[in-house]
């Protein structure tokens, strides 16, 4: 079959909602696009542990500490599901880790913002995980089978993340004047960066949208962002708090909330590596990787030795 015919056959499968599996024929660009997207998604889960890890030792109660630990552990798991999915396409785990640690690979910019108060843990769960969930629910139907399955597993765990965040803010919103102020402040700082998580406006993308054609992505950035705004604009009322946007208003004609303009200059600055915590995040990842080197080496040495030993035992058995 010619490449042209293979491509046509491939697209017919995509159009018919047949999932693509690792050993199926696929266009090289489809493979590459998926490796990029899945590994960046994985990196986001891994770096995403850092802002919250910052508060584990300072959580206000044992209950909150246990919840936060469980959530951060889930994010590590999400990273691992995704790295495995990328590996089914021929990407090497070590290469992906190297690319993250060297700064070559990107991760979601949201994790380059600092976590200044305890209320940030609530705001992250509610807003950041909330935004991630919309993306990941869409990706449960992505065309590459292993990536879709990884997202199904992730989504099962994510709903607890968002709920614990909202509940944590709910407690603060009913607390002392100081706690209420802390709650509002966290919402004020995380609102706009959360909207940026969906990426540039659709009108900014001049390239034709191959990802949608291949059903890797199934909704555009603007569609997902609008869905998020509509959801959060209602939920915030239950907290008795406000979103820091004076243009936020229900539009009966569109049946959606209108909202103000994102500060795109800030967006690009953080993407380019000049966010408040870009350097700190990469330094933390590199430190963890370097300090874990002897553990990885020791595990390999141990495995080799016990392998040898069982070989020898086997041989002496055979001789006896």
């Amino acid at each position: 079959m010619s490449v042209h015919e293979l491509e046509a056959q491939f697209q017919r499968k995509i159009d018919a909602e047949v999932k693509i599996e690792p050993r199926d024929w696929m266009p090289e660009a489809y493979r590459k696009t998926n490796i990029r997207q899945i590994s960046q998604h994985a990196h986001s889960e891994i770096v995403g542990m850092l802002p919250e890890g910052n508060w584990i030792t300072r959580a206000p109660s044992l209950k909150r500490k246990a919840i936060l630990l469980a959530k951060v552990q889930d994010e590590a798991g999400h990273g691992l599901y995704l790295y495995s999915a990328a590996e089914t396409l021929g990407a090497a785990r070590e290469t992906m880790i190297d690319d993250l640690n060297s700064g070559k690979a990107k991760y979601s910019s949201i994790f380059n913002y600092p976590t200044l108060t305890w209320a940030d843990m609530g705001a992250i769960g509610w807003l950041v995980d909330g935004a991630a969930i919309l993306n990941q629910v869409m990706l449960c139907r992505t065309s590459y089978g292993p990536y879709a399955r990884a997202n199904v597993r992730i989504c099962k765990e994510e709903s607890f993340h968002q709920r614990q965040g909202f509940e944590s803010l709910l407690v603060l919103s009913k607390g002392s004047a100081e706690q209420k102020a802390m709650c509002q402040d966290a919402i004020d700082r995380w609102w706009w960066p959360s909207l940026m998580m969906f990426g540039p406006k659709d009108s900014e993308s001049t390239n034709n949208d191959q990802s949608i054609h291949w059903k890797i992505k199934r909704k555009t950035n603007d569609e997902l962002r609008q869905q998020f705004v509509d959801m959060i604009a209602e939920q915030v009322k239950l907290l008795g708090m406000t979103l820091p946007d004076q243009h936020l208003k229900w539009n009966a004609e569109r049946q959606h909330f209108d909202f103000g303009e994102i500060n795109w200059e800030e967006f690009w600055n953080v993407v380019k590596g000049n966010g408040p915590c870009n350097k700190q995040r990469l330094a933390a990842r590199n430190k963890a990787h370097d300090e874990g080197a002897w553990v990885r080496a020791a595990a390999v040495a141990y495995a080799e030795k016990s392998n040898e030993r069982s070989q020898n035992n086997h041989n002496s058995w055979a001789a006896a």
């Binding site: 990029r36 390239n207 990802s211």
Partner: peptide, 23 residues
Amino acid sequence: IEIRRYFYGDIPGDEAGGNSAAP
């Protein structure tokens, strides 16, 4: 094939791979 620049939300696609096999 033109590849869209933004894959997972806000992450730019250029120079952000992880494709070559050897670390």
